[in-house]
Amino acid sequence: MRIQGRVWKYGDDINTDYIFPGVHTYVLMSDEEMGTHAMEGIDTDFTKNAVKGDIIVAGKNWGCGSSREQAVKCLKARGIGALVVVSAARIFYRNAINEGFPVVICPEAVETTQPGEQISIDFDKGQITNAKGVYSFKPYSEHIQSLMQCGGLLPYIRQSLAE
């Protein structure tokens, strides 16, 4: 799989309150509605203007803070193709896997990527291409890959229960 998209760039420690504010967290809503609140706590420009296929590039410890899964769901519902980061907080990273939303750990690519530029990610080759060059990243482990290939945890469990 290969995706290409426009970059939104952020710094370090973007927490889940920034990605999906607490005020919406305990209200039951559709994934689509979650998407309308994406990044509302830190960047209303994104909330208004992000489009399907855009890619988020950010620093270390993305998604620190609460366990709220809407922080992943709102980005996925918004059509964000992938997240490229220096590092991601554990629960966010896990929630992303369970939602089948790709998080790429690639500090080198983060360093040279500029806001607004077009980058492409080739998941089969494990490569990110931006204006400055081509950068390799480590693919998910075998177990995680099989989970991602199913489309996330729910389809994976359904498949396992059926077998």
Binding site: R68, V72, I91, N95, N98
Partner: peptide, 10 residues
């Protein structure tokens, strides 16, 4: 250990 909602459903 803390996890997310879908994980807990699983």
């Amino acid at each position: 250990v803390g996890v997310g909602r879908t994980e807990m459903a699983g």
